[in-house]
Amino acid sequence: MASPSSFVSQEEFNIFHSIDRQLYTILVVNLWRDPVESMQVMALWLWLERLGYDSVVKKMISLPQILVNELADEAIICLNCIHNNLISSSSESNDIPLTQTLMEKEISLQFFLENRLNGIAGLTKIMNDVCIRALLDLMQQAIERNAAQSLAESQMVISHSIHQPVVPPGRHGAGDMVQPRTPGADVPADDRTMFVTFSKGYPVQEWEVRDFFARSYGDCVESLHMQEVQPHQQALFARIIFHKANTMEMILRGMGKVKFSINGKHVWARKFVPKRARSSLLLPPPSNFPSTSFRP
């Protein structure tokens, strides 16, 4: 017997799932995340909605995109629990603080381990019934855009190599004297930036973050950017740019994510991963991608 959805036209189906298409577009266009992996992430979030975690997608649409990116990273950890029965041996990596905040009720990685079989079946059904039909055209467009981008980047590298003048070793003109360089002075800011998140209900102030790192690591913070919120709202994340990249390395201790306490409030930290930059030589998103007006 045919399912009811088979009598719905593709256009009607897309309209019904327009908010899901908007969120998927943010993942693969605005944030440049992997299109196939992002479809699995969407399936996870839709599965959680069916389990009673209310309005997951709707809540994410209203978030700054930097938080959507972090939530997608946490979703990958949850998917590993379901598909691979895997939790990192590092206790600091076992937390999904932003997901817990978003769901507004109890959820943990243990939940995904305990519901692996239901999760596999539920994710498969949502992928087949919803994601493939509602998101496939967007996924194909994103894959084509990424392939075109990679080709443009390769051509740019080849062109640069061909036109780069070759200077024999040891032969420099009068104006080519090698200037002394300060160690770490040319490290881009993104490579010296850490992203930290805070638990909802336990507000952390900017002065607390600055004081914590000053007491622990000395005068190490070049700048600190808290999430901009209304006076009655709590910041959920911040970006910290250090004077030296090795300060961040000391804090993270070689791990992907660490947890520490600032005045009794939990804070999670990881290396900041910026959105992929678009140069003037790279292709724009296809014109038939749905437009998004969400702030970054």
Rank of each mutant, 00 (worst) to 15 (best):
L48W: 06
D34H: 11
D54Q: 13
I26F: 06
V28L: 07
S55L: 09
L31N: 07
E37A: 11
L23Y: 11
D20H: 14
N30V: 09
S55H: 13
V56E: 07
M42W: 07
L44F: 12
A43C: 15
W45G: 01
W32G: 02
L44E: 03
I19K: 15
D54G: 07
W45I: 05
N30L: 10
G52M: 01
E37N: 09
Y53T: 06
V56P: 03
Q22G: 11
S38K: 00
E49F: 07
D34G: 00
R33P: 01
V36I: 13
S38Y: 04
L44V: 07
L27N: 05
G52N: 05
Q22M: 12
D34V: 05
V29W: 03
D20N: 13
P35T: 10
S38R: 04
Q22S: 14
L31G: 06
M42K: 01
L46M: 11
I19R: 15
Y53D: 09
A43L: 05
T25C: 13
V57G: 06
M39H: 08
L48F: 10
V29K: 13
V56A: 10
D20W: 02
R21M: 12
M39T: 14
E49K: 06
R21K: 12
L44Y: 10
M42T: 01
L27W: 10
R50E: 14
L51R: 15
R21Q: 14
R21I: 06
D20M: 01
T25S: 13
Q22F: 00
S38H: 01
W45E: 02
E49Q: 14
L46S: 07
R33Y: 00
L48Y: 00
D54Y: 12
V28I: 15
M39C: 15
V36F: 08
W47A: 02
S55D: 14
V29L: 11
E37T: 08
N30D: 15
L46T: 02
L44P: 02
D34C: 06
P35K: 08
V36N: 08
P35G: 11
L51T: 03
N30P: 01
L23I: 10
L44R: 02
L31W: 05
D34P: 04
N30Y: 01
R33G: 03
N30R: 13
D54S: 13
L44C: 03
V57I: 15
W45T: 00
L44N: 02
I19N: 14
W47P: 03
I26M: 12
R50Q: 14
V57P: 05
S38W: 01
Q22Y: 03
W32P: 00
T25E: 04
V36P: 03
I19E: 15
Y53W: 08
L27E: 06
A43I: 04
R21S: 10
M42Q: 11
R21P: 08
L27A: 09
E37G: 08
R33E: 10
D20V: 13
P35E: 10
V28H: 06
L51D: 04
W32I: 01
S55C: 09
I26E: 07
L51A: 08
R21E: 05
L27G: 02
S38V: 04
Y24D: 07
R50A: 09
N30M: 09
V56F: 12
G52D: 02
Y24C: 04
W45Q: 04
V36L: 12
T25R: 10
Q22V: 00
Y53I: 04
W45F: 14
V41M: 07
V28K: 02
I26Q: 12
